[in-house]
């Protein structure tokens, strides 16, 4: 049972559509993850013990929420968030609907990655900024972000790749996308051709993302 080229050509519109849906879902959820997750990660870091905005209560509450969301299996999150999805996008199926759950899953994931990246910064550099009399905002903007940007870019790469994997499960709510195509055709209909093609697309996609991520991360680093 080899690859049937004719079959691939036949299903080209489906594959392209699925690819577009995957990009759409990743695009939206990545944007949300960065817009909310980045500040969240920063707050998680600077409220930590011994840091310049140390605050146990905020750190505790945010840390708890982040851990809670992260501990829920994605499939369950998809179902559990149906009411929220309905409220936000007025529909519970399709890529837009799936993007809501993907965003909710990706945001705390990215926030923790940001927090970890910030932790890698030499504490002495932050301390030197405090000693010089810098404001908290200056420290965030001119020390924390520049010093961690290369590591955060790698975090973005990781988040995108996780999103590629998660988005495959979006089929459960009719989200569509490449992964969904693989499951529908390959898994349920034993259509090996589509299975192989979609898997190859996913592999290539992940490789490209990783390469781009590594390259950007390196280009940004001045060390």
């Amino acid at each position: 049972m080899g690859i049937d080229i004719q079959h691939v050509i036949e299903l080209r519109p489906d594959i392209l559509k699925a690819f577009g849906e995957t990009m759409y879902m990743i695009g939206i959820s990545l944007t949300v993850a960065i817009v909310i997750g980045l500040p969240l990660g920063i707050v998680l870091f600077i409220t930590d013990r011994g840091l310049f905005l140390e605050n146990r209560i905020i750190k505790g509450i945010l840390g708890f929420i982040v851990n809670m969301v992260r501990s829920i299996p994605f499939i369950i999150l998809l179902v559990a968030l149906i009411p929220l999805t309905k409220l936000l996008v007025d529909s519970t199926i399709g890529p837009a609907a799936a993007s809501v759950s993907l965003s909710v899953a990706a945001t705390p994931f990215f926030a923790r990655i940001v927090e970890t990246s910030l932790r890698e910064i030499d504490k002495g550099v932050i301390e030197a900024a405090v000693a010089v009399g810098a404001t908290p905002w200056m420290i965030i903007k001119d020390v924390l972000l520049p010093e961690s940007k290369s590591s955060i870019v790698q975090g973005v790469t990781m988040t995108i790749i996780s999103l590629v994997a998660y988005s495959a499960m979006a089929g459960v709510v009719g989200g569509g996308g490449i992964g969904d195509l693989a499951i529908r055709f390959g898994y349920y209909r034993y259509d090996n051709t589509i299975m192989v093609v979609t898997v190859v697309i996913l592999i290539v996609l992940v490789q490209i993302i990783q390469q781009l991520g590594d390259w950007t991360s390196k280009a940004l680093d001045k060390r």
Binding site: D122, G124, V125, A128, V130, A131, D142, P146, E147
Partner: peptide, 17 residues
Amino acid sequence: RLKIGMIFQHFHLISQK
């Protein structure tokens, strides 16, 4: 603190600036 300078054994400069 603006009026108290400090220098360190390992310099602690912002490496990306």
